[in-house]
Design a protein around this nucleic acid. Structure first.
Lengths: 382, 382
DNA sequence: TTGAAAGCGCTAACAG
DNA sequence: CTGTTAGCGCTTTCAA
């Protein structure tokens, strides 16, 4: 048993204390380390098992003993170490959350949902951002596995290997928002993007628009089944169903950065002054479309109608307010967490949970005008 | 030593395997648990200490042994458990981050900064949101202490007790964005809100505005030294310096919710149709001001000029784009993490790190007009 | 250069 | 009802 230097004038405190020289090396002062279950047991004059029983509420303890233990706990400000417990129980009570970029409103919304659910279930959340970089994602997953998280919720960007490795290591995984086709065995919680895009196209077509531009994203892995793929594919299908030939020239893709989005929007709007509506597949693309339209002196919706996927707070503040396909980010996060933590059955089957989207109609779309202002537009070159 | 059921046809795999009945109780299949350092040692036919040495790169190991160990690691897909290591080393390599609400753009920006710095330092980030609720904050801090995080970065909302307890438990704490006056011993990283508000007031005053409204927040703890307090106090001071009597009627406070912000803005703008400019102390208040102005058919900036504290993405998208006091949220997060993890000296002293703000001038402010349109405004009552 | 062994703080049998 | 004890997976002396 270790011996602990004991200070007489501490009134028999009995807590863990050690003496350490302070930085200046002159005056010494007591530095307390966190109390352990042993310290509590010693002070309450009971065994460590009893302390554990009292604290976890398992097993029988006499009221008198319980009181003694609780008093010791209070006096020592004892906080059981999750480390010891986790090592023993093989459960850490924490989950990993891997998003693209936490400052992205959708990711943040999803994170909020995860946080809310995790809280009700008493779990901690380890957050990290992969920035759409598969290598970084792989590294994050590795580290999360080392931390022995009980599970991982991710908006995946990379390929299958690392995720399979995680599952082999015994870590449950649930995807949110995206579900790589190569990993059908991993359960996922998605928004019904297809329905969302379809509703947007139908809305625009119903307004009389015939030449609709599409601002999409280059799928990182270019894997079919990726959200970008779904949105673009649905756009084409929906158009075709209406008997509108999907002109290749009207579909442009950008990388997920503001610059790239802006360039894509500028390219589209300048190259095709004849289009009367734009469907932006992400809020970044929607933002770019609005900015570019403004730059080109295009009036919204008189000259060009705009719809975007993802309803973010600024959609309401925009002038005119932007029509958008709302996706339930928070619900998706909450649901993903539920699937991960309390729905092993569903996890087993791996069929995706699909949550509905909603077309929120505001003021950014109008009927196709006879004169789309092509002359004025082509005259200006940003 | 434990005995492990061994399956002949696994080709002498030697990894940790146990047999478990699957859910349906019919077919049995092998369920692997994560390999431990012992498994690796056994497979490489060395002692666990050697494995540890190889993996941590400490101590001398012969090339041959090292190779054998690394091969075993590879074959078993061994990932050292952070639990075991943390328990031994008394460092978890993770920090806690407590924000108000992760969907708040400023909080998210700050979180991104923390994430970035934590990553370079190899630390994990445990995220939680206190939702401006001191009780919740206290609970989160308690749990973080149980997790034995190496430190905590927080945008604090509650009172001192819990934070002091955390420090007593040996957890370093750094505040970001706010620094309760009651806890001067805890280091903090702040934005120079006073300078920011002052620059905004001077800008408006320079434009000729005399009756400037202030939309502020009710400080949760009402403690002086809180950001809300600083912003409002600075507003009054700056006004007074300009010889403008700070009319009580022109200062209103809201709780940090959209509804409350909207109500406050509506109240101010309706009650005082004579004011020509508004300074919003948060982006939520700025949003409310814009929405209310639009609702009341007030033109920005012709009828009313608006400046807000916190430059968020939508400020640029607003029409007209909103002039704002930019605060370096990401830098603050990064810096806070640095102070926490690699600047114990500064932590010791506890003098706040103050980062500069910048007035980003866009189109939402104009010179005071002779006729502020009071008649038209008071006629309408939302 | 290597291995054995002692814990880190906790829980969960298992005896009393 | 309560205490003793054996690990959980790892690092780290200390000998060999």
């Amino acid at each position: 048993m270790e011996t602990i230097p004991y200070s007489g004038d501490m009134g028999g405190w009995g807590g863990p204390v050690r003496w350490e020289a302070s930085a200046d090396g002159v005056c010494e002062r007591p530095v307390s380390r966190a109390a352990t279950i042993k310290d509590v047991a010693r002070r309450a004059e009971v065994g460590v098992a009893t302390v554990s029983r009292v604290l976890s509420g398992s097993g029988p303890v006499s009221p008198a003993t319980r009181e003694r233990v609780l008093r010791a706990v209070r006096e020592l400000e004892y906080r059981p170490s999750a480390l010891g417990r986790s090592l023993k129980t093989q459960r850490t009570g924490s989950i990993g959350l891997v998003v693209g970029e936490i400052t992205d409103p959708f990711c943040a919304e999803l994170a909020a949902g995860v946080l809310a659910c995790a809280r009700t279930l008493g779990e901690h959340v380890l957050l990290d951002a992969a920035h759409d970089d598969p290598a970084r994602e792989a590294e994050i997953v590795d580290r999360l596995v080392e931390q022995r998280v009980d599970g991982i919720i991710a908006i995946p960007t990379g390929h299958g290997d690392r995720w399979r490795a995680a599952m082999r290591a015994g870590v449950a995984v649930v995807f949110a928002d995206r579900a790589p086709a190569e990993l059908p065995e991993i359960p996922s919680v998605l928004a019904d993007d297809a329905a969302g895009v379809r509703s947007a196209v139908e809305y625009l077509a119903g307004l009389g628009h015939r030449r609709i531009g599409f601002l999409g994203t280059t799928a990182p892995g270019a894997a079919p089944g990726t959200d970008a793929g779904v949105r673009e594919a649905t756009f084409r299908t929906a158009l075709a169903e209406r008997g509108l030939a999907p002109e290749e020239d009207l579909v442009v893709r950008a990388r997920p950065s503001r610059d790239s989005a802006f360039a894509a929007a500028a390219g589209l709007l300048q190259r095709r002054p004849d289009l009367t509506a734009v469907l932006a597949a992400t809020h970044l693309l929607g933002e770019a479309a609005v900015l570019v339209a403004r730059e080109l002196d295009l009036r919204i919706p008189a000259d060009v109608s705009i719809v975007m996927v993802d309803d973010v707070p600024w959609a309401e503040l925009c002038d005119p307010p932007l029509t958008a396909v709302a996706r339930p980010g928070r619900d998706m996060g909450y649901r993903a967490c539920e699937v991960l933590l309390r729905d092993p059955a569903r996890r087993e089957r791996g069929r995706p949970v699909v949550l509905p989207t909603e077309l929120v109609i505001r003021g950014s779309c109008g009927p196709r005008t006879g004169m789309p202002g092509g002359a004025a537009r082509s005259a200006r070159t940003r």
